[in-house]
Nucleic acid binder design. Structure first.
Lengths: 238, 238
DNA sequence: CAAAAGCAAGAGCACTGCTCTCGTTATTGT
DNA sequence: ACAATAACGAGAGCAGTGCTCTTGCTTTTG
């Protein structure tokens, strides 16, 4: 299965990892647009053509970095949820768990701006997300779904009202994502999910420059309201 | 002032416009990353070095396109507001004016995805927005501010509650943007503004692929709730 | 009418992604 | 154990990029 069969296979794994590490370093330093295959190879002491034995093209390297970034932010979100769940002495209200997860995602984004831009900014390569990315891409979303499910089971949800025309869409999405949850809440969750990343993107991409100073409190405020719009209950004043 | 003084000056203006037009064409076709100075020059029948008489670098060309894009979407927003204002037989409720403006911005984004990505996606060039862009960049925001001001004067605002810690920030931003409006509403407006573009970006950048089908209704729903979060009043059911 | 400034063209530099070939080395099947 | 096969690293090379510099020419200016 995952047993390493020989020196060749072992070396391949190590070289692949080294390439990705160096590429990630250049990504963090210069951004995706300035990431250069040749520079990566140069830094690793290989010749550029050798690198093509590991990644068939620059876009494939970028795709690998995209997958890793999705996994990294997904892991951060999962960790934040676990931490918020085990808060002592009392378990945190669900709105605050939501805010904690959202804040963790924002923190990761601020710490890794170029990786964030890679996955939540404009699509860089040939404008089609490969299938490899859809799994890791949904990890953060799943965290929010699980969180809402917990809230639903513990306290119930203040299910938002829904226009009749959106009813079928809400049911379709609910069947896909979380058949055990109320469709209006799932639809609100999808919208809240997008809006959450809107806040992060605006902050990160400079739209708040010379305008908003207290960014973290504003983010927490908005995230809390989004949680309530999904139906979560928490402390009244945010 | 703006009188054209000679053939040389006239030619410069025309050539500059031609370069921007061709660049915009390539931008729409291939995206900002693949926009090539040499290709633009080639298509215009000039040699690449001649193009540097008009734009000192590729980034400056991109900056010019950014400014134009901000102006274009700003104009669309202003037009949508004017149209919604003059609706007959009855003037539209303010929530619906907000939704109309937001929908117009979304429509422009869907029609010009690469230009939208240029201004609201990840920052492409050396990661610092030049001063030339801040004016045009605020046009859309100003439309929303004006719209909220109209609503405030006509019907008043259902001013959202605000945590005390955010009070100073809200007052600072209000002094900058719209001193005549209630600070909590201005702060909510800033947050709503970011969230609105989060919805558009997620749709445009493929995050809704294989998930959301009825995107326009969902957008209108979320936009309406954002309007209400700022304090606007409208028809109850959205 | 001469000096100055603006302009297009071309050559050239350093860089990019990517392909192809050519020895070398490790893995595999007999 | 040995030969066939596949993977590998190195190098040369192609077409393309942004950008600079020099060289003549033309328009504008004093």
């Amino acid at each position: 299965m995952s047993t390493i069969r020989g020196a060749r296979e072992r070396a391949r794994i190590e070289v692949t990892a080294a390439i990705k590490d160096e590429a990630r370093k250049q990504l963090a330093a210069e951004g995706a647009a300035r990431l250069s295959l040749r520079a990566v190879a140069r830094e690793l002491g290989m010749v550029s053509s050798a690198l093509y034995r590991y990644f068939p093209s620059r876009d494939d390297l970028l795709t690998a970095l995209i997958v890793d970034a999705y996994d990294a932010v997904g892991e951060v979100a999962e960790g934040a949820r676990a931490t918020a769940e085990q808060a002592r002495p009392h378990p945190a209200p669900h709105v605050e768990r939501w805010v904690a997860v959202a804040g963790a995602v924002r923190g990761w984004a601020l710490a890794h701006p170029h990786e964030y831009a890679l996955i939540y900014g404009s699509p860089v390569p040939g404008y089609s997300a490969p299938m490899d990315t859809v799994g890791p891409a949904s990890r953060v979303g799943l965290v929010f779904i699980d969180l809402v499910r917990d809230a639903f089971r513990a306290d119930g949800l203040a299910v938002p009202r829904l226009a009749p025309e959106l009813r079928p869409e809400a049911e379709r999405i609910t069947a896909d994502l979380a058949p055990d949850l109320p469709p209006p809440a799932v639809l609100a969750l999808v919208a809240a999910w997008a809006q959450l990343f809107g806040l992060i993107s605006f902050e990160l991409f400079g739209q708040f420059n010379r305008l908003v100073e207290a960014r973290e409190p504003l983010f927490r405020l908005a995230a809390g309201e989004l949680a309530r719009s999904v139906g979560l209950r928490g402390t009244p004043a945010g």
